[in-house]
Design a binder for these strands. Structure first.
Length: 565
DNA sequence: AAAGTATGGAACC
DNA sequence: TGGTTCCCCTACTT
């Protein structure tokens, strides 16, 4: 019985690091019976002594577990040599990492798809080439409105879906100036190499990743979590932010001076029952309107020019529950999308906003971390929920009782991590490519890594996995550049910039990539040493890295190229 | 080097 | 309904 079924990810390639590649051709026939699956077993044999790790549910039953637990609570401290599972507290097995492979607790349902009957390691969604696609139970029904809408949009939608092109290797630049975890990222809309970042402490970072040491940190704009950043497209020297300190602010990026457009806690701190935090934010460009929402379910409208509130708060999600995200439709800004902790995403007509007046409610299995209209036509919605599913909802005029696609993907909630959000690639004309970090790790040649996944949401295919053997942390925050083939990621307190190896690419390639901008591989060398960084201010530039890179063995991730049909 | 900690959501009563 | 307890792949610092 193979321990690791994921042939492609775990098969023994000789290179030190692993690549990830589109999983198209290999294992097409039978994803569940991968033949190259022996090394996991070896590992198990080595350590298989003490507790029978080989589980199979034959361990104690539930009652025993309960008893055990009760004993443990009451009993005086005794030293037991028995192995105790830290997940279920049961004995006879142990969950946790063994080397770079995570051994599941056999008594818990799958950590990936959450369904009983198997553990994470054997989850069909973990090995399937289509990354856990669940087609909709039925197609959305077309209404006449739908028809008209589609006709309008038809011209904008390319007839032929471009092929994904995978650049060979990626350079990866790192900087660390945040002292708390990164919570949001945004590329500057016009200055090509500038990345903005917000953190849990309220700091705002500006990093010119093309230049050496070109970074700025504004520490006094917000006093806690920066939840959203948005540029004013009419004046890109100005950035809007919303924060858990309850303010929405407008900041001049050159000077760092900022003023608030909204302050929900003018009285200061009077306990958590009254403290309001702002989570969602977007700008209705046509109307010069700033929309923000709080942790009690309310939406606020602010006139960006007059800096005054318009109307009172409007309840758009369950009272007392957090509204997590807001997004104005790119084609029709008056169509507003919200999502929240009440497990719903909702569509609204911003011209006629009042409680209970949503045009549609999109039900999710758990808290919805994010929901975005597709960037060009606004015709699709991509949502990320904490039930480990990415959902795609077709046509905002269709029947939205159920999503048109569900993709099982590991992006669990963890209180220590910034919530994961799947985001559209703004450059993909077919509006099918999404990027999102992955929670559970995979054993890549002995290193547990958490890749950043590129998923074709129209098929559910995992198109590329971006990783680097030196980056062992999870990357919950990801952002694709609006024009360039550049990916930014935030992992804990560090920021990463990934771009195709070298800057000089043949023109042709550039053109090709323009359509897809997928990164399939990661190069090891350019990431420099991460562990040895001093805590405070150490930072790297690409130049630094190239120098340091010489100390590395020069091994790059290598792997199979995606076979083109 | 093991222990401590920050800290959100939901299950549970 | 609300307070309490628990928590499965964290990323640090002490």
């Amino acid at each position: 019985m193979p321990t690791l079924k994921r042939g492609k990810a775990s098969s023994s390639s000789s290179s030190s690091s692993r690549v990830l590649v589109p999983m198209e051709t290999d294992s097409e026939e039978s994803p569940f019976s991968s033949s190259s699956s022996s090394e996991g077993e070896e590992e198990e044999e080595e350590e298989g002594e003490g507790g029978r790790v080989s589980d199979d549910e034959d361990e104690g039953n539930g009652e025993e577990a309960v008893e055990d637990r009760a004993k443990k609570r009451k009993a005086p401290i005794t030293i037991s040599l028995k192995k105790v599972c830290k997940v279920c507290k049961g004995t006879g097995h142990e969950a946790g990492f063994r080397g770079a492979t995570y051994i599941d607790c056999p008594r818990k349902p799958c950590f990936l798809c959450k369904r009983p009957g198997h553990t994470t390691m054997f989850c069909p969604h973990r090995v399937a080439t289509e990354h856990g696609v669940i087609p909709a139970p039925r197609r959305n029904t077309d209404t006449s409105l739908d028809y008209i809408f589609k006709r309008q949009l038809k011209a904008k939608i390319p007839m032929i879906k471009p092929t994904f092109v995978i650049p060979g290797q990626l350079d990866c630049g790192v900087i660390r100036f945040h002292s708390r975890r990164v919570t949001c990222l945004e590329f500057h809309p016009t200055r090509n190499n500038v990345l903005l970042s917000g953190d849990k402490k309220g700091q705002l970072g500006i990093w010119d990743y093309a230049k050496l040491h070109e970074k700025t940190v504004y520490g006094s704009i917000h006093s806690c979590i920066v939840n959203n950043m948005k540029f004013n497209l009419e004046n890109d020297g100005v950035l809007y932010t919303s924060s858990s300190d309850g303010t929405a602010r407008c900041t001049d990026l050159e000077t760092g001076t900022s003023f608030f457009l909204l302050d929900l806690n003018p009285e200061g701190w009077n306990g958590p029952a009254t403290w309001r935090m702002l989570y969602g934010m977007d700008i209705n460009v046509e109307k010069g309107l700033l929309l923000v929402a709080d942790n009690f379910g309310y939406l606020y409208l602010v006139d960006g020019r007059l800096k005054t509130r318009i109307g009172g708060p409007i309840l758009i999600h369950k009272k007392g529950s957090k509204v997590v995200g807001l997004h104005c439709n790119p084609v029709q800004p008056d169509v507003l999308l919200s999502c929240g902790n009440d497990h719903f995403a909702r569509i609204w007509d911003a011209r006629r906003l009042e409680a209970e007046s949503s045009l549609a409610s999109l039900a999710h299995g758990r808290v919805v971390n994010a929901a975005y209209f597709s960037p060009l036509t606004g015709n699709k919605i991509l949502s990320t929920a904490q039930d480990n599913r990415i959902r795609v909802w077709d046509s905002i005029f269709g029947n939205l009782e159920s999503p048109s696609r569900e993709i099982v993907h590991s992006h669990d909630f963890n209180r220590h991590l910034t919530p994961f959000r799947a985001e559209w690639d703004p450059k993909d004309p077919s509006e099918s490519l999404a990027v999102i970090g992955r929670y559970i790790s995979e054993n890549y040649d002995g290193v547990a890594l958490h890749p950043i996944d590129f998923i074709d949401v129209s098929t559910g295919k995992l198109v590329a996995e971006v990783m680097n053997t030196d980056i062992t942390t999870i990357s919950p925050v990801t952002k694709l550049h609006p024009r360039d083939d550049v990916l930014a990621s935030g992992s804990s307190r560090s920021l990463f910039i990934w771009k195709p190896k070298g800057d000089k690419c043949p023109e042709q390639q550039l053109l090709e990539r323009k359509s897809m901008n997928i990164f399939g591989r990661v190069e090891r060398k350019s990431c420099g040493k991460l562990d040895g960084e001093s805590d405070d201010d150490s930072d790297f530039s690409f130049k630094d890295k190239k120098r340091k890179a010489k100390n590395f063995d020069g091994k790059y991730l290598s792997g199979r190229k995606k076979a083109k049909p």
